[in-house]
Design a protein around this nucleic acid. Structure first.
Lengths: 263, 263
DNA sequence: CGGTTGTTTGACACGCGTCAAGCTTCGTGG
DNA sequence: CCACGAAGCTTGACGCGTGTCAAACAACCG
């Protein structure tokens, strides 16, 4: 690590980590071990095995962790953009606001997934990130990340890929919102979560929906009643089993069929 | 410029510029002047005046231009990702494909706007870019861009900002697709084009819709008939004047009101 | 244990999609 | 330069998929 980044690390340790100055919020934990090496989610932060080589750099980058309680915001629209985050435990929703006060969920984020990238553009956060359950994140000061990415090719490449992957993901949601029926939307939503849990070595057929029906509907561009009705019908048809927030996929092939009904 | 990037430039000049090997397509023009300095769109490629300083680097980066005829693709889903592009003249639509063959327009791109960023993620183009009229683009080999961005901080920062800005833009479209009525969608569409033309020093109240009603509807998640009906009604109400592909905004305040009807 | 928040289900309404017909514009080749 | 066919646009009539409103129930939390 260069002298310059060393200095920045020192400075960042003392400044950038403090959470938004809300009374009662916990100060961030300082990262003084090499936790990335031991982190079960490491492969998602690095995205592919070839990049394991730069784990040491990742460790340098993650200056600490921050805990966010259910319902609290990691950041809000208009906050100064200083850090990007990786979900360490728990999950978040991203909220985009409209001029007239309407808001929409534009993404759910599971452990290992990046948060805050949309703040780079203007230097201010462009969305809210709110915890769906008590959660924690790894804090990576963007200035440091920029510096490091000039020194280490793998880091640079990694950040470019993260940003681009988010672009692709959002195009996918546009696709869903622009062309799909309510049934297809709900089916795709379940399959998306299924595959993301599977990537994390959790069951792809049984998981919790940490978000409410209303938040789900918001992401999918439909009303909460429609989400509820659709889930009920999927259950009646034997595709899934729903019990409040717990979902179990019973017939994956037919659910996939429902997701792309116009094949 | 370093020896390494010098070498890469030489190599790129001979290889990367060739268009997709289609009979009849024109070979790309080699950039042998310093055209960025004279380019009217320079401010959009650099995004803000503070970054004018790196115009020389931009010139090094733009290895040439490529012409794309109306209806032809600059790249297609699955093509190897090698370059990113800036629209130089004309305009493009970005098409995202679904597993079952459905496709949706996920963006229109005017001069000065970046194309191809979604290919970084996997190394393969994730969408189609099709010219809406006879157009040309500046070709920037991504490998060279990566290299240069490690040497020049301003270039690096610029690319991060481009990527992040695209993220913010797409979130905006998700918002539109998820929460707006057909009227609001069309009004927002017109206002979006209006402000983008204004930024380019063209009239914000009178411009051509280079895309068909069907393509417009696809972007907005509504059918072409609905686009047509809505435009007709806006005209009847005195908000705009439509004449085929030519639009004139007559009452900007009321159009803005229509764009966010739930204020 | 009670109040709040979230979920399910029903009945009804309406915005937008679908289908269809006629018109206009554009591109191309004679 | 005109003629023809194809592609794009407009408008109308009608139906369906979701939204809206309402009410009862369930789950959660302090």
């Amino acid at each position: 690590m260069s002298v310059a980044s060393e200095r920045l690390v020192q400075s960042a340790r003392h400044n950038a980590l403090l959470p938004r100055g809300m009374p009662g919020s916990m100060p961030a934990t300082i990262n003084n071990g090499d936790p990335c090496k031991r982190c079960a989610m490491r492969q998602f932060c690095t995205m592919n095995p070839d990049e394991f080589a730069c784990t040491q750099e990742m460790d340098d980058l993650v200056l600490g962790h921050r805990h966010v309680k259910r319902g609290e915001a990691l950041y809000r629209v208009g906050d100064d953009f200083k850090n990007i985050y990786a979900v360490r435990t728990g999950s978040f929703k991203k909220l985009t606001l409209l001029a007239d006060g309407r808001e929409q969920v534009t993404g759910f984020y599971l452990c290992g997934e990046p948060l805050g990238l949309d703040g780079i553009s203007t230097g201010q956060c462009a969305s809210d990130a709110v915890a769906l359950e008590d959660s924690s994140v790894c804090v990576m000061p963007f200035e440091l990340l920029e510096l490091l990415s000039r020194e280490v090719k793998a880091v640079q490449h990694h950040i470019y890929r993260l940003l681009s992957a988010e672009l692709v993901r959002e195009s996918g949601w546009m696709m869903l919102l622009g062309t799909m029926t309510a049934d297809e939307r709900v089916a795709n939503f379940l399959l998306d979560l299924s595959s993301r849990w599977q990537q994390r070595a959790y069951s792809p057929t049984q998981f919790m929906l940490r978000m409410t029906r209303e938040e789900t509907g918001s992401l999918l561009g439909i009303k909460l009643e429609t989400v509820s009705r659709t889930l009920s019908r999927f259950q009646k048809d034997g595709l899934i089993e729903v019990n409040g927030k717990e979902v179990r996929i019973l017939d994956l092939p037919r659910l996939q069929q429902a997701a792309y009904a116009r094949c």
